[in-house]
Design a protein around this nucleic acid. Structure first.
Length: 496
RNA sequence: GCCCCCAUCGUCUAGGGGUUUAGGACAUCGCCCUUUCACGGCGGCGACAGGGGUUCAAAUCCCCUUGGGGGCACCA
């Protein structure tokens, strides 16, 4: 029973950020594991000693946790197939390499980089299509080996490619076949004794009993090499599913230069993990109906290899924004406000995330006013600055087109007088006050509303004026209108 | 260069021989709501890459071309 269980893994190499593409691969593996009540394993492929860092490991673990992709086995969750860091599994790779060596399925190679390059150049001259390793070291005598060792050469271990057709049945693409003759004897153990990716991944997936290997389709051409190794080692070959890649808006492989490419950047920008997950789930997958907003449980229930598409998908920030906004609108204001606190703290809008109940209520009022007007938390920080700061910056265009106009000075002066004596600082009284000023000056209310908004917020756009005035409070209202009046006067003086 | 994968609106996709004047979503445009922006409502624009087959019938099946992507390391 236990042996029939579906086991999938996500096996990132900790050489940088948790990429959006990697996150989507992780998500699909996780979804399929959860859907099939299988096991999801996280394995760290840290055999690139130059580029791997502990920090990158942490970023990956944190990113996975933030997205809600919990693993059943892996770092911090040792299972019976551990360890889950490749650098802690070196003895395993060594053991099976020895087996291949003994069975003459692999051999030591002492060729230097220069010699390899030389050989390639020679081949290009005669048979330019597919140069491969010339097998110079395939049948080295012990004496030759000793000679090379004396020269200080450290050998690699190469796998000897059997020249046959390799066919596999991809779960998404059907039959895929490669000609073994085109493959070169590739290195499985580097001269420093560390295994290469194509070798280590096979040992680990086999030993960890991985049943389904789901990964980006950039791995399709690695698959024949890996299948050959499974067969050479006598392991069962897992099922493969190569999922389409995610591209940037320019249709090139998603990378740093596309702006935000890492999961953590999206957290920083204030996207909700549920929204990000919902969106990237739809990159290359569709449940086949017209709905798009789904809880993670609903996605798990509907997830199937059958409705994964085969072609690459372009990442769209616009659509992500829409997803995020849908989640923001659905969220209770209370919870939303709580989520926002760290960002407010980060922006120095509040001193401490622990707010008094009154202050929390006040922030909540602001969130209510802003709801639907921001697509992520950093936009909230940008758009709602005037609630939290003392000094506001009046956008120059707003000043020019709204405040620095004939008659505005009188309007604001009259309004300021009126506002400083308003007794009940609530929406109704304020609307009465403003409309009262309008009728006494014989102008339309809009003529007052716009300059007032700019005076109070520095912006031409924002929530309803009267509700905004209530939250801002009488003192700030009067003060900001006074400041605006001064600025207008100054501008007029400079103009003359 | 060689090998492999892929191909429906600008983007994500539905559709898997007749139910299709090819459906939805994002974006975009217009109108309504409105003090502004957003939200919401209504509507518009917008695609089967091309060519051959197969078939009574093809976006759907096959082939070729073209286009896009990926891989050809002592990186993963």
């Amino acid at each position: 029973m236990e042996n029939n269980k579906i086991r999938l893994r996500f096996a990132p190499s900790p050489t940088g950020m948790l990429h959006i593409g990697g996150a989507r691969t992780a998500l699909f593996n996780w979804l399929y594991a959860r859907y099939s009540k299988g096991t999801f394993i996280l394995r760290i492929e840290d055999t690139d000693q130059v580029r791997s860092t502990e920090e990158a490991v942490n970023v990956i673990l944190e990113g996975m946790k933030w997205l809600g992709l919990d693993w059943d086995e892996g770092p911090g969750k040792e299972g019976k197939y551990g360890p889950y860091y490749q650098m802690q599994r070196l003895s395993l790779y060594k053991k099976y390499a020895q087996q291949l060596l003994k069975e003459k399925k692999a051999y030591y190679c002492y060729c230097t980089k220069e010699e390899l390059a030389e050989s390639r150049k020679r081949q290009l001259k005669v048979n330019k299509s597919h140069p491969k390793y010339d097998r110079h070291c395939l049948n080295l005598s012990d004496e030759e080996k000793r000679k090379y060792e004396k020269e200080g050469r450290k050998p690699v271990i190469r796998y000897k490619i059997p020249e046959k057709k390799i066919v596999f049945n991809d779960l998404l693409r059907g039959e895929v076949s490669f000609d073994g003759e085109l493959l070169s004897d590739f290195v499985i153990v580097k001269s420093d004794g560390i295994p290469t990716y194509n070798y280590a991944v096979v040992i680990d997936d086999a030993l960890m009993n991985i049943t389904h290997v789901m990964r980006g389709d950039d791995h399709i051409s690695n698959t024949p090499k890996q299948i050959l190794l499974y067969e050479a080692l006598g392991f069962d070959v897992p099922k493969f599913a190569h999922i389409p890649m995610i591209m940037g808006e320019d249709h090139a492989k998603l990378s740093k230069r596309h702006g935000a490419a890492s999961v953590m950047e999206y957290r920083k920008m204030g996207y909700m993990p549920e929204a990000l997950v919902n969106y990237i789930a739809h990159l290359g997958w569709s449940p086949g109906n017209d709905r798009e907003i789904f809880s993670i449980e609903e996605i798990i229930k509907q997830f199937s290899l059958k409705n994964i598409s085969k072609h690459a998908a372009v990442f769209s920030t616009d659509k992500l924004n829409w997803f995020n906004n849908e989640y923001l609108k659905k969220m209770p204001v209370d919870s939303l406000t709580k989520l926002l606190l760290p960002y407010l703290k980060e922006a120095d809008y509040i001193k401490d995330e622990k707010l008094s109940p009154e202050k929390f209520e006040w922030v909540k009022e602001i969130v209510k006013l802003m709801l639907g007007r921001f697509r992520n938390f950093s936009q909230f920080i940008d758009y709602a600055d005037y609630f939290f700061t003392d000094k506001i910056d009046i956008e120059s265009k707003a000043f020019r087109t709204v405040l620095n106009k004939d008659g505005v000075l009188d309007i604001l002066t009259t309004l300021k007088e009126k506002l400083s004596v308003v007794e009940n600082w609530d929406e109704e009284s304020l609307e009465d006050a403003v409309r009262g000023v309008a009728s006494s000056l014989k102008i339309k209310a809009g003529k007052i509303i716009h300059p007032t908004r700019v005076s109070l917020t520095g912006k031409k756009i924002g929530p309803g004026l009267f509700e905004l005035m209530v939250v801002l409070g009488q003192e700030k209202n009067v003060k900001r209108i006074e400041e605006a009046i001064e600025k207008i006067k100054e501008a007029k003086k400079n103009a003359n």
